[in-house]
């Protein structure tokens, strides 16, 4: 049977290990993992920011969306209120893509000032609202299922 003192010692050791472990994970992630840059941050990098694989996140600037159905070419601007970057993307956007929506795009920021996106992701807010009268959620649902059935 282990003595009381050994138990306290073992518990203290586990506690120290735990704190060290947490500090390593938290500290490591905090400095290295930035999931996306905002337009302001990407622009602040200047020439450093060009032609490197990066994620860009922000709002779709209202009124900036241009969708060419023939060429499957989508253009819009991502803004964070201060900075703004033009984005070009290939293929149909996700169903929930729209003006003012939060998005994250993966790709490279070209020297021509256009961000070439290889992957477009729509960020969902943490709010869920029943539709106001006049909207037709049942039809939205059908179109949603159709678009994701591929």
């Amino acid at each position: 049977m282990t003595s009381k003192r050994t138990k306290w010692g073992a518990l203290a050791a586990v506690g120290v290990l735990a704190v060290a472990f947490a500090w390593l994970i938290y500290g490591g992630l905090d400095s290295n993992v930035v999931y996306f840059l905002t337009p302001k941050e990407l622009l602040a990098k200047g020439t450093e920011g060009y032609d490197k694989p990066v994620r860009l996140g922000g709002q779709v600037k209202p009124g900036s969306v241009v969708w060419d159905e023939q060429k499957l070419d989508l253009r819009f601007a991502v803004t964070d209120g201060t900075g703004e970057i033009a984005v070009q993307s290939k293929g149909a956007p996700p169903q929930m893509f729209k003006d003012g929506q939060g998005v994250v795009v993966e790709g490279r920021y070209g020297r021509d000032g256009v961000f070439k996106s290889t992957s477009l992701m729509v960020k969902h807010s943490n709010e869920y609202k029943a539709p106001t009268k006049g909207e037709r959620p049942s039809e939205m649902y059908k179109s949603l299922m159709k678009s994701t059935g591929t």
């Binding site: 999931y35 996306f36 994250v104 709010e127």
Partner: peptide
């Protein structure tokens, strides 16, 4: 707690926790 707080500590694609005010 890291999983729980991850959406507040870092920028994520996943939304933060909903609260009763944001939920019908």
């Amino acid at each position: 707690p890291i999983v729980w707080m991850s959406v507040r500590w870092w920028r994520t694609l996943h939304q933060i926790q909903s609260n009763p005010r944001g939920l019908s």
